[in-house]
């Protein structure tokens, strides 16, 4: 930044800061920051404006470095990005206005505006990039977490496993269901697998197709599938779609399916008290 511009900015610092703190108060109520206490709010804004001034003559790489610790804190506090970009925009406006009011000659220079623009743009870029990085991390770890609870195969008795499916089945999950099913059947030496779709909100042709394919694959490795948890409205839509589930066994509830599975493996549940 041009030394004379920097000098004038620093000279007017107090005036700019005071105006900006006043201006930014207005955003507070629009931007869901009401839950933050007054003292944290004030000190964070204070720190924010100090950081802005610290970066006045840094090049963009140094800006990233200087700001990263601070942005991490903002992210943890849950400070909305929107508030920050608006804050920086109003800071830019106030700075330009304040300096224009001095009537100095350089204010008529396009260079003057460009310097201030690029200073604030660097800051916005650094903050936006930190924020989006943290969102990407969050999305990534949630995706991993979701994948883990995606399609568990649970051995419940010797030779009997249950796969409860909950939530939407997209193509990625459908692949996982197939993999876990086949691996698990072999690993647990299962004879019967109960696939429970109580928690699947929509059974359309794609979901039905994947279930049919999974059941056929399970048959190929020497076990049987029973589809359970078919809610009445799902039964009706599947019939409307013209999908034939008659080829493999279906039961309305997991409980009934379990009784069938035990029978298929030559066992039953007996009530000891009645004997």
């Amino acid at each position: 930044m041009h030394p004379s511009i920097k000098e004038s900015i620093l000279e007017k610092k107090d005036e700019i800061v005071e105006q900006w703190l006043e201006e930014i108060e207005q955003f507070r109520y629009e931007d869901y920051l009401q839950n933050i206490s007054d003292s944290v709010y004030r000190s964070t804004n204070r720190e924010f404006v100090d950081k802005i001034f610290e970066t006045v003559d840094l090049c963009s790489d140094d800006v990233y470095e200087r700001i990263s610790q601070y942005s991490e804190r903002l992210i943890q506090l849950g400070w909305p990005l929107n508030y920050i970009t608006r804050g920086l925009q109003s800071f830019r406006q106030i700075t330009v206005e304040t300096l224009s009011n001095t009537g100095d000659n350089y204010c008529y220079d396009i260079e003057f505006y460009q310097e201030i623009e690029s200073w604030i743009d660097n800051l916005i870029n650094a903050l936006v990039s930190d924020y989006s990085g943290s969102w990407e991390n969050t999305v990534f770890s949630q995706k991993m977490a979701l994948k883990e609870l995606s399609a568990p195969l649970i051995p419940v008795f010797d030779e009997i496993c249950v796969m409860p499916l909950i939530g939407t089945i997209d193509s990625e999950r459908a692949k996982l269901i197939m993999e876990n099913l086949l691996e698990g059947v072999i690993e647990n030496r299962a004879q019967v697998v109960l696939i429970d779709i109580t928690g699947v909100p929509v059974v359309d042709t794609m979901v039905a197709h994947h279930i049919i394919q999974a059941a056929e694959a399970v048959r190929l490795v020497g076990a049987e599938c029973i589809l359970v948890g078919i809610r009445p409205e799902i039964a009706q839509t599947v019939v409307n779609l013209g999908i034939d589930l008659g080829k493999f066994s279906t039961k309305s509830t997991l409980k009934k399916g379990m009784a069938t599975a035990l029978k298929m493996t030559d066992r039953e549940i007996v009530d000891l008290a009645s004997k």
Partner: peptide, 15 residues
């Protein structure tokens, strides 16, 4: 039941 029918139809068309 009709909610499920409509939702399923939307799913087919969207897919």
């Amino acid at each position: 039941v009709d909610q499920a029918r409509i939702t399923t139809a939307i799913s087919e068309l969207a897919r």
